[in-house]
């Protein structure tokens, strides 16, 4: 099930945050959405999940996402928000079970699989307020995965994670992509993006600067120009990882 964006524009207040974005995302792959602060990354994934009013089209195969029944849309597209907040001190299994809401059940198999994949099964009966930041972000990922969506849109899932937990989180996304889910993930860390992403969508002030296989997009020239930084490439496992060294012209 392909997720396609065509002519997508979003205005927040009077400011146009996204201009005419075109992109075709493929299932079973991880697409990293990269760009400087304010480039419109979060806005893009929110609009793709029909959580923001927008112009242009977002389609799942032939169907317009915005025209889907909200529950059906929620079954197809899982959205992991940036802020890892749970407002009440609920039990972990209750939080994860929220992912089943669009299905109207509490399917133990799906919840169990989500707990297992995120390595949170042993936390199931703990109150969420007692968890560490890393545990909480795993629980919230489990919440989305419990809904067994076809697409996972994750907005900066590494925001509050240390390097080890960040790498674990991305490895989990890699695993769900391998099982056929389409993954679109907003990232800030260029090295991690290059390490994990199949494709990269590079945004610059609301416009697509580049979209394609990671190796072709994450070049020192392109990344340097969009982020305004000097970039060195290091090679690891056949991938070229761009490391920012300093500001360009600074």
């Amino acid at each position: 099930m392909a997720l396609t964006v065509q002519g997508l524009s979003v205005a927040l207040g009077r400011r146009t945050v996204l201009h005419d974005v075109d992109a075709a995302f493929r299932p079973g792959r991880i697409t990293a959405v990269l760009g400087p602060n304010g480039a419109g990354k979060s806005t893009l994934v929110k609009a793709m999940a029909a959580l923001l009013p927008h112009r242009g089209e977002v389609r799942l195969d032939e169907r317009m996402v915005a025209a889907l029944d909200p529950r059906e849309r929620a079954r197809l597209i899982g959205y992991l928000p940036q802020d890892a907040v749970v407002h009440w001190n609920m039990r972990v299994d209750d939080v994860v079970a929220l992912g089943r809401m669009p299905h109207g059940d509490r399917c133990p198999r799906a919840i169990g699989a989500a707990l297992c994949l995120t390595d949170t099964a042993d936390l199931a009966d703990r109150p969420v307020g007692e968890l560490s930041g890393g545990e909480r972000s795993r629980v919230l990922l489990a919440r989305v995965l419990a809904g067994e969506p076809r697409w996972l849109l994750a907005d900066e899932p590494l925001a509050s994670l240390d390097p080890a937990h960040a790498i674990d989180m991305l490895d989990r996304l890699r695993q769900v992509a391998r099982e056929g889910m389409g993954v679109v993930v907003v990232l800030h860390d260029l090295v991690q993006a290059a390490r994990i992403a199949d494709d990269v969508l590079l945004l610059d002030t609301g416009r697509v600067a580049a979209f394609g296989p990671a190796a072709l997009v994450l070049t020192p020239e392109l990344v340097g120009r969009v982020f305004g930084v000097e970039v060195a490439l290091i090679e690891r496992d056949g991938r070229h990882l761009p490391v920012p060294l300093g500001r360009l012209g600074g």
């Binding site: 959580l51 929620a74 928000p81 907040v85 009440w88 929220l98 809401m101 809904g147």
Partner: peptide, 10 residues
């Protein structure tokens, strides 16, 4: 409990 945006996404 997950925030209004997450609720809308559900």
């Amino acid at each position: 409990a997950l925030g209004e945006v997450a609720a809308a996404s559900l």
